[in-house]
Design a protein around this nucleic acid. Structure first.
Lengths: 337, 337
DNA sequence: CTCAACCGTTAAAACGTTTCAACGAAGAGA
DNA sequence: TCTCTTCGTTGAAACGTTTTAACGGTTGAG
């Protein structure tokens, strides 16, 4: 079942040397048409499959890019991945997706493996700040959706502080004075940034700092949003916020579900703002107000930076995009009391 | 920047032979503690990263599994992927996700690459029937969400005919006699099977065959669902179906969106059934009735079959799971006329 | 004190490609 | 006819590991 037919077998079968077979594979134009045909026939007949390990060992290059995502189940990341893949294909590279699932250990294992595989480059949305240590291993790395603090590598990000500010300013303009921010864990930089923006908005509006309470979750998945919803509803209605800003749309959707289930109405009892503006946000039970990020562009740009890494005079760049607030029914203006 | 420090450099730096370094890496117990420390220190100091190509070339094994999905943006597949990854990790393997995006060319390229990489095994939800030809190359392959017709390899699937039958029977029981099935292209076997089940249900109920019209789409994404919605609404209301069975939830969500946008109500003007029961189905504007598949179990089972492939007396198996109808608001019983 | 067993270490041979310098044959120009 | 190019092909040397058999040194038993 595994006779492992190699380039030499093909050569022998076609009556040429292995160098010629290699030429047929890599520089078809340099070999005489007749010989080429003969070799191709032999390849076909023997079912030869080129051994990429050997090729790569010798040639040094690898034809693949990898993107280590934080959560493959989050449409935000698959949208970014689409941009990455488009750009990668333009450069003739394949893309392997790896899912760290917000788990530092998995992330470490994948990075280790990718470095050992000598992939052409790695795109990563790291789990936390400590992850950065695992990156300096010779393989080019670009951070996605995360600004690099030092100048040691390229990064592509969206201004999350501004995003948080947009979201909460919008809530304040709609008359809310008791709000919650839902998200976590705080080890994730995006969460910290969005929260900081939210706090800035509160401050800028002259509201007391406790106008925004922080409801920390253990992750950014739908289930965590439902949990947060239960915690919110558990509060005495006098202390319960009238609006919630969620660190991403999955949380917001979970929150929404939990509200409906417990008989509260959105936006009347609780206004909700999400983040990312994933496709499902607009299709939700109550269409979700959200902060939109240029997802595919994020991916494409990151990939281009990555591919520019080993050009001679490369300098690390930090590209930052602007987010945009998309208003929908989940924050419709409250009736005046 | 790329001095490419190898095992021999480490050996020299630690004052041992390269074989010893290799032993430290692969069988740490066989080397004396003192030597081991010295070698590890050298590795650390030189920033040595093992070259997986060379390792694999020599050792023959590869430590990675790949899953080629039809659409990485479809939560159904990412849920299956979670199951795959869990099982893969249990076996000490990493998982690379590849997105064919329903494109036969991409799929072919990925398969080619994966074969050349000599991955331990490939899981794939193929684009169409012709894809099967690309699979016989020595690497073990298991089909996911697709029953293999011949006995040449393992497969794991869900009974899609039954699923279609469940969905449409449910609609008929709710009093619908003019229905549409939305989905496509027909080259996708899942679509064909679900349609066949739908037709069976119609027949079993004694309704005329034209009680179910087929609305073919070009893909299974949300946007195609919106398109289909516009086409539906364009029909004269006397000919317009009162219920739609969508080949997956993404289509259903798109359809739903399009209905709301055009001022039609679900389920009153149009009842909707989806397929897959992805997490977002329950959170939709109108919670979606859907046909649930055991997604993670699908992935885990497929992976176990894959890993069993190169055991001595292996026989190819075809595992088939049963789908389950989950009723929600999108098919609430119509008011009696 | 001898011999066998054991232990940690090593030299060298793979693994399957790509690449480079060199080769012979054939054709062109003189 | 002889030399100079050109063209297609090839032998052999890498690439960086893992692995195997053999090595010398130490230890324990007899």
């Amino acid at each position: 079942m595994k006779p492992s037919v190699g380039i030499r077998d093909v050569a022998q079968h076609a009556g040429v040397s292995n160098a010629t077979v290699s030429n047929v594979l890599n520089r078809p134009d340099v070999v005489a048409p007749a010989t080429r045909q003969r070799v191709l026939a032999a390849i076909e007949e023997l079912g030869f499959v080129r051994n990429e390990s050997a090729r790569q060992l010798r040639a040094g290059r690898s034809r693949v890019l990898a993107y280590v995502v934080l959560d493959a189940a989050n449409p935000f990341f698959t949208d970014v991945a689409r941009g990455v893949e488009d750009a990668a294909r333009d450069a003739g590279l394949a893309l392997f997706l790896c899912n760290s699932a917000s788990d530092g250990n998995r992330e470490r294992e994948y990075l280790e493996l990718l470095h050992e595989q000598r992939v052409e480059g790695i795109l990563i949305t790291p789990v936390d700040a400590e992850s950065a240590q695992l990156l300096d291993r010779g393989t080019p790395v670009v951070l996605v959706d995360r600004g690099a603090t030092d100048g040691t590598r390229c990064s592509v990000a969206v201004d999350d502080v501004l995003g948080g500010e947009l979201a909460v300013t919008h809530l304040i303009e709609n008359g809310h004075t008791r709000m919650a921010m839902v998200g976590g864990p705080l080890s994730i930089q995006q969460v910290r940034d969005r929260r900081e923006g939210a706090l800035r908005a509160v401050e800028a509006a002259g509201l007391p700092a406790d106008a925004l309470t922080f409801l920390e979750t253990r992750g950014l998945q739908v289930g965590e949003g439902r949990n947060a919803g239960e915690r919110l509803v558990g509060l005495p209605s006098s202390r319960r916020p009238t609006a919630a800003f969620c660190a991403n749309d999955l949380l917001a959707l979970g929150l929404l579900q939990s509200m409906t289930q417990q008989g509260l109405r959105v936006p009347d009892d609780l206004a909700v703002v999400g983040y990312d503006d994933i496709e499902f946000a607009a299709a939700a039970a109550v269409p979700l107000t959200s902060v939109r990020q240029p997802r595919e562009q994020l991916g494409r740009t990151a990939t281009r930076l990555l591919l520019g890494e080993n050009e001679p005079g490369h300098e690390h760049r930090h590209v930052k995009f602007q987010p945009e607030l998309v208003v929908r029914a989940s924050t419709a203006v409250r009736r005046q009391p």
